[in-house]
């Protein structure tokens, strides 16, 4: 069943077209990635979804036009966006607090998740006292506990070192299998997209349009072993090919 559906969504800032023509859908319990070059306008799409910006075209949620943005989406920004002045526990309850949940009730809802997120014992720590990976997990905890219909993840591991990122991807895949969140992930990391997603939308450079929709038929759990690894490798190569053909040949430095 389709939860989110976008049809011919466009957005321009001033005279600059950022999103040219975006149509996509996300089913319930599906993990979908948006893959595209840096600066393609992927984050702009999230701004439309969270209501920070307004664009043209149709945005449908559960069969009705999307209006009350805050009710449907829990948004996780690129960096962890943890508040340095709040302890981890109070950082994770932030979304509930904004929803109007009382402090005690919010803490009670968050507390049982700490162990699962590998944060048990760190409730009273400040973000600066945690490793980058732990901060990212805390940020995800803050996101999922809002219990919105759908997660919007904007390059959540983009700022992490390669090893931590790989560990976090494994962990997220595992978490997702347990919870089956409906999730939309923005990334420019091909391996990440293939490893985590059920489907991938490949975006063009700005102004962004969907150039390809790719199903990822790999079995879960995705542990990067056995024959599935070769299959994943082939898929990654194919997608990389698409992405590289999008780029005008000017030695674009990809980060």
């Amino acid at each position: 069943m389709s939860r989110l559906g976008l049809r011919r969504v466009r957005k321009a800032f001033g005279g600059l077209d950022v999103l040219a023509d975006i149509s996509l859908s996300v089913d319930a319990g599906e993990f979908v990635s948006i893959l595209g070059p840096s600066g393609a306008g992927k984050s702009t799409l999230f701004q439309l979804l969270t209501g920070a910006e307004h664009g043209e075209g149709e945005m449908i949620f559960d069969g009705a036009p999307l209006d009350d943005h805050g009710r449907h989406f829990a948004f996780m920004p690129q960096r962890d966006a943890l508040m340095p002045w709040r302890r981890i526990l109070d950082n994770t309850t932030l979304g509930l607090e904004v929803q109007g949940v009382g402090r005690k009730a919010a803490r009670a809802r968050v507390a049982p998740l700490f162990a699962e997120f590998g944060l048990a014992g760190f409730e009273r720590h400040f973000p600066a006292q945690l490793s980058a990976g732990m901060r990212q997990r805390a940020a995800l905890l803050r996101t999922v506990v809002q219990e919105r219909d759908m997660l919007l993840l904007d390059e959540p591991f983009g700022a992490l070192d390669a090893l931590t990122r790989a560990a976090m991807q494994r962990w997220l895949e595992q978490m997702w299998r347990h919870h089956r969140w409906t999730a939309l992930l923005i990334t420019h990391d091909v391996r990440e997209a293939v490893f985590l997603s059920d489907r991938i939308y490949v975006f063009s450079a700005r102004p962004a349009r969907v150039v390809r929709e790719i199903k990822v038929p790999l079995p879960r759990p995705r542990d990067r072993t056995g024959t599935a690894t070769r299959q994943a490798g082939a898929l990654e190569a194919e997608i990389l090919d698409i992405l590289l053909n999008l780029q005008p040949s000017r030695g674009h430095d990809h980060d």
């Binding site: 701004q47 943005h69 829990a74 948004f75 996780m76 920004p77 690129q78 966006a81 508040m83 904004v98």
Partner: peptide
């Protein structure tokens, strides 16, 4: 931090909430 403000607004916080929760601290 811009992303903190963006996240709070996505959570449904108004300007006053954003000020008290993020800008003031």
């Amino acid at each position: 931090e811009a992303e903190i403000g963006q996240m709070l607004r996505a959570m449904g916080a108004g300007r006053w909430r954003v000020f008290m929760l993020a800008r003031l601290p």
